[in-house]
Nucleic acid binder design. Structure first.
Length: 207
DNA sequence: GCGACGATTTCG
DNA sequence: GAAATCGTCGCT
C-alpha cells in the first residue's frame, strides 16, 4: 500500500493517525525549505507519552517539546550536541505527542544550494544523509519550530512523486537511542544510498 | 542555580 | 577513538 496518490489531504489524514504507518508513509515524501528539496529516504517513529522511553515527550510536556503535544503536521525542530538541528513531523491526535524524526533524504532540487551549506561533503548522497545533515542541507533551524508543514509556509512537506512500494521498506532498531533496541521503529527505503549508517548508541559516560 | 548529557557529525 | 559545543531538564 502506498499513500501519495491521495494528495495533501490524504497525507494530513495519514499524519493524524498512528505513528508507525505515518512514518512509513513519509518515506518518499518531499520536504522543501531554504531553496532545497529532499526526497525522504529514512525516518524513525517516536511514540509520545505512551511508554516510549526514547521519545523526547515521554516525561511530559516541556518548553522544548511543546509542539509535539499539538496537532499533527507541524515541525518539531530541536537542537542537540551543541551544534546540530534535527526535524520531526508531529503525528497522531492532539495530546499524544508522537512524532517522526526525518533521518535522511535525497536532494532532488537545489543541489548547489545544499552543497554551499554542506562544504565538508564530497558526494551528493551525503548531503542529507543523517538527521542533522538533512537539516543543514535545508537550512532548517529554530526559526522553523512549530511551523505547519502542509501549507505554504517556509517548510513544506508534500506527497511522494512516486509511490514507495511497501515491499521496498526496511525496518530496524532506532539509531542513537539508549535501550529499546528491540523496537524496530526505524524505517528506510531499501537500497537507497542516502540512508544513514547505523551506529549503536554508546553512553557518554563510557566513552 | 548547577551539572550531566544528548534522536550527531567530523576529523584523526 | 574522541572532540566540538550548548540548550535542556531534572535535581545525582
Amino acid at each position: 500500500m502506498s499513500y501519495p496518490e491521495v494528495g495533501i489531504a490524504g497525507l494530513a489524514e495519514l499524519l493524524a493517525g498512528p505513528v508507525v504507518p505515518a512514518a512509513r508513509g513519509l518515506l518518499g515524501c518531499r520536504l522543501s525549505a531554504g531553496g532545497v528539496t529532499v526526497r525522504i529516504t529514512e525516518v524513525e517513529a517516536y511514540a509520545g507519552t505512551a511508554g516510549d522511553l526514547a521519545s523526547h515527550a515521554h516525561r511530559g510536556r516541556t518548553p522544548r517539546n511543546a509542539v509535539m503535544f499539538g496537532p499533527a503536521g507541524h515541525a518539531y525542530v530541536y537542537f542537540t550536541y551543541g551544534m546540530h538541528w534535527c526535524v520531526n513531523v508531529v503525528t497522531g491526535p492532539q495530546g499524544e505527542a508522537a512524532a517522526v524524526l526525518l533521518r535522511a533524504g535525497e536532494v532532488v532540487e537545489g543541489v548547489e544550494v545544499a552543497r554551499s551549506r554542506r562544504t565538508a561533503v564530497r558526494r551528493d548522497v551525503d548531503l542529507a544523509r543523517g538527521p542533522a545533515r538533512l537539516c543543514a542541507a535545508l537550512g532548517i533551524d529554530r526559526t522553523l519550530y512549530g511551523r505547519y508543514l502542509l501549507g505554504d509556509g517556509p517548510v513544506r512537506l508534500r506527497p511522494a512523486a512516486e509511490p514507495v512500494p511497501e515491499a521496498t521498506i526496511a525496518a530496524g532498531p532506532r539509531v542513537g537511542v539508549t535501550g529499546a533496541h528491540d523496537v524496530p521503529w526505524r524505517f528506510w527505503i531499501a537500497g537507497e544510498p542516502t540512508v544513514s549508517q547505523y551506529r549503536r548508541h554508546v553512553p557518554r559516560s563510557r566513552r
